[in-house]
Design a protein around this nucleic acid. Structure first.
Lengths: 193, 193
DNA sequence: CTGTCACGATACCGATCGGTACTGTCACCG
DNA sequence: CGGTGACAGTACCGATCGGTATCGTGACAG
């Protein structure tokens, strides 16, 4: 990126990105203008357009960085447990995430809905889901289930569904529901092998 | 396309609503203006604002009518089967829905994301999910499972999750994954009673 | 024929959008 | 010291937004 040629990486870029992440998530990509982002970040529009060629590129950078952060956090939080409990730890961490104040859906999924026409955003989201599958497959293989890939896909559906239902219902009940369903599916797959 | 069309009071409103439904779903609430809706519906802005006090009210009317249509369709399509197969018929119908060209997520869920700040839209979406739960509970009670309400909530998570994963992946695989998971959960709940 | 009514078309309003240009002011570095 | 570059602030651009007002027309009632 352009900051690479500079002797000192700028904190301004990070500040703009952080502010944009918060505002876009809170109100949506179309409902937040670049003027507001720059003002809230304590930056000028000139600085914003120095680091991001356009609003669309800012959105893409935001989603990419956010996906990285989520999966790093998820991998770290599930590293402790072992065996079948390790898979269910994913759902525990997710439910904890859903309970955070101001949670209203996965920022990546919301971003796809906000920018329906952007194929690059769609690709970022596909990669995001694929990372979920990679983690789940690894944890399921560790739990010695029969078909890790197939079960991982079912658990992914539970994860994304829980996020949506939690957001619409306004409670975290769906997180517990998804965990219960996952526990049944994992236990059955373990016993079958 | 104005040639020879007879003015019909209720038909104009329905035409605007239908056009708005298609455009909002395709590109998002914020990306479609009232000018475009009126033009595409072959109506004037005056007519649009005669039947809908504001764009926000148009969105709410669109989502309400759409939710009604989805659940009427779902109830009709699942009326044929009996027993446990009747529950799985919901997932068959849903997968069929996901396979429709141009499908990119549930319009209700997308509408909530588009209009994060509108509590009335949020209420419409909650009612929408509640109708899913009512249908699932009825079908599960018909299948004599132990705890229809609890299992219905898990299947709801699968339904919403499948919709999201199908949309992001661009394939209908997640529909089949959700059906498989649902089959396991229902079979286990039936055997347990 | 004449009034009424729903309608499409058009022009318009203030506000805001994404994006650009310009100015002044710091900090750092020779 | 003067020079350089990143920066905030601000004015500005054309376009488009949601929403309102005006006008002309065709269908129908009396």
């Amino acid at each position: 990126m352009a900051a690479g040629v500079l002797p000192n990486p700028s904190a301004t870029r990070a500040r703009i990105l952080e502010t944009a992440t918060a505002l876009f998530y809170e109100r949506g990509v179309h409902a937040v203008g670049v003027n507001e982002i720059a003002a809230a970040a304590g930056a000028s529009k000139l600085s914003l357009y120095r680091y991001f060629p356009s609003k669309a590129e800012l959105v893409r950078a935001m989603l990419t960085e956010h996906s990285d952060r989520i999966h790093a956090w998820l991998a770290r939080r599930t590293a402790a447990a072992r065996g079948p409990e390790r898979v269910l730890a994913v759902f525990d961490v997710l439910t904890e995430w859903f309970a955070q104040p101001g949670y209203h859906g996965c920022a990546i999924v919301n971003g796809v809905t906000d920018t329906r026409a952007d194929p690059e955003v769609a690709a970022i989201a596909r990669t995001h889901l694929h990372r979920y599958l990679d983690l789940l497959e690894e944890l399921l293989a560790d739990a010695d289930v029969a078909d890790p890939a197939a079960l991982a896909r079912q658990l992914l559906v539970l994860i994304e569904g829980a996020s949506v239902v939690v957001t619409i219902e306004g409670t975290i009940d769906a997180g517990a529901d998804a965990r219960k369903a996952a526990a049944v599916l994992v236990r059955l797959a373990s016993a079958g092998s």
